[in-house]
Computed example of a mutant assay.
Amino acid sequence: MTAAFTFPGQGSQAVGMGKALADAFPAARAVFDEVDAALGEKLTAIIWDGPAETLQLTENAQPALMAVSLATLRVLESEAGVSVARDAAFVAGHSLGEYSALAAAGALSISDTARLLRTRGRAMQKAVPVGVGAMAALLGLDYDTAVAIAAEAAQGQVCGAANDNGGGQVVVSGNTEAVDRAVEIAKGRGAKRAMLLPVSAPFHCALMQPAADAMAEALAGVTINAPLVPLVANVLAAPIISPDEIRRRLVEQVTGTVRWRESVTFMAGQGVKLFVEIGAGKVLSGLVRRIADGAIGTAVGSPNDIAGVKDAIAAARAG
């Protein structure tokens, strides 16, 4: 049985995440200390003590989620003998989780990743004035239908598929009026539910081009190494290892669709049966089980999860 390591995206954050790991394991604490030093501030105080509305700010949530994922991975390495190079056929992450995946696979340093995500969060927030853009979840429709609805709703504005999450869940993003139209059209096309999401900006659509430009500049200034194992890129749903291509696809990702359903389908088609979600929450584990028949999705983000995930990875290693 083959394993893949996956890393969660924005929305999985919660005040207090990662604190039990940091309290119990020096390897986890070291990651949080490194992130604080890289940012020149105590992000850990916000992660562990809140308030929630401050943690939810995009510029904080993105590096915070990465910090929890990498702290969790370091504990898996030190306490469970887990090795990305040996135990993972692929790494993949949902949106910002792609940066966590690259740090986990040694393509980016933790310090550079923290600074990149702080830049990314600020740039995505600034790209579109509040109220101009929106996102909505269309549930119970396949991807092609959702894309057609978004195209019909655009009417000269921006409206497109931002996330193809799988399990009949597609998120559309764009100008507020166009997204409102998409919600109404979807309700008439048999969607189980169609609802606006409580987000601060319209991520993963053409309105994010200023943020993509900012990330192109930021990424040009950091060292990217070939990852220990291939990254299944959001915008391709296919594996990449070239540092130059990684840099290019991370820029494209800001305005492009997160092709999560296809990414999981690809990995399952390559023999992956165990998907280990590393970090906060269990969103990706739930999606995996709805996308790939027979796949095992397991999440690790607290000390209580370590033993079970160690056993699951050992079983995968043994085949």
Score class of each variant (00 low, 15 high):
residue 1 M to R: 10
residue 2 T to W: 13
residue 3 A to W: 01
residue 3 A to P: 00
residue 3 A to K: 08
residue 8 P to E: 09
residue 18 G to L: 04
residue 20 A to S: 15
residue 25 F to V: 01
residue 26 P to H: 14
residue 27 A to Q: 06
residue 29 R to E: 13
residue 30 A to Q: 09
residue 30 A to W: 06
residue 32 F to P: 00
residue 36 D to C: 07
residue 37 A to Q: 06
residue 41 E to G: 11
residue 44 T to A: 15
residue 51 P to D: 13
residue 54 T to I: 08
residue 54 T to G: 04
residue 59 E to L: 14
residue 63 P to E: 11
residue 64 A to C: 10
residue 68 V to R: 03
residue 71 A to V: 03
residue 72 T to F: 09
residue 84 V to C: 02
residue 85 A to G: 01
residue 89 A to Q: 14
residue 91 V to M: 13
residue 95 S to F: 02
residue 95 S to K: 07
residue 100 S to L: 01
residue 104 A to K: 07
residue 106 G to A: 08
residue 114 A to G: 07
residue 121 G to Y: 01
residue 127 A to M: 08
residue 128 V to C: 07
residue 129 P to R: 15
residue 130 V to K: 15
residue 131 G to P: 01
residue 132 V to F: 06
residue 136 A to Q: 04
residue 140 G to E: 11
residue 147 V to A: 15
residue 148 A to E: 15
residue 148 A to P: 00
residue 149 I to S: 14
residue 150 A to N: 12
residue 150 A to G: 11
residue 154 A to D: 07
residue 154 A to N: 10
residue 155 Q to L: 08
residue 155 Q to S: 03
residue 156 G to R: 09
residue 156 G to I: 03
residue 156 G to P: 01
residue 157 Q to R: 15
residue 157 Q to A: 14
residue 162 A to H: 09
residue 163 N to A: 07
residue 164 D to E: 13
residue 168 G to N: 05
residue 176 T to Q: 15
residue 178 A to E: 12
residue 181 R to Y: 03
residue 182 A to M: 05
residue 183 V to S: 05
residue 185 I to L: 14
residue 185 I to Y: 12
residue 186 A to L: 08
residue 192 K to L: 13
residue 196 L to Q: 12
residue 196 L to I: 08
residue 197 L to G: 07
residue 200 S to H: 10
residue 208 M to Y: 09
residue 211 A to T: 06
residue 219 L to Y: 02
residue 219 L to S: 04
residue 223 T to E: 15
residue 225 N to Q: 15
residue 225 N to C: 04
residue 231 L to E: 11
residue 232 V to H: 11
residue 232 V to E: 14
residue 234 N to C: 03
residue 244 D to R: 02
residue 247 R to H: 04
residue 247 R to D: 07
residue 254 V to K: 15
residue 261 R to M: 13
residue 263 S to G: 10
residue 266 F to N: 07
residue 267 M to S: 12
residue 270 Q to E: 15
residue 271 G to F: 11
residue 274 L to N: 09
residue 277 E to Y: 05
residue 280 A to V: 07
residue 285 S to L: 12
residue 304 N to H: 13
residue 304 N to S: 10
residue 305 D to L: 06
residue 305 D to M: 05
residue 306 I to S: 03
residue 308 G to L: 05
residue 309 V to L: 13
residue 313 I to A: 05
residue 314 A to D: 12
residue 314 A to L: 02
residue 317 R to E: 07
residue 318 A to E: 11
residue 319 G to S: 13
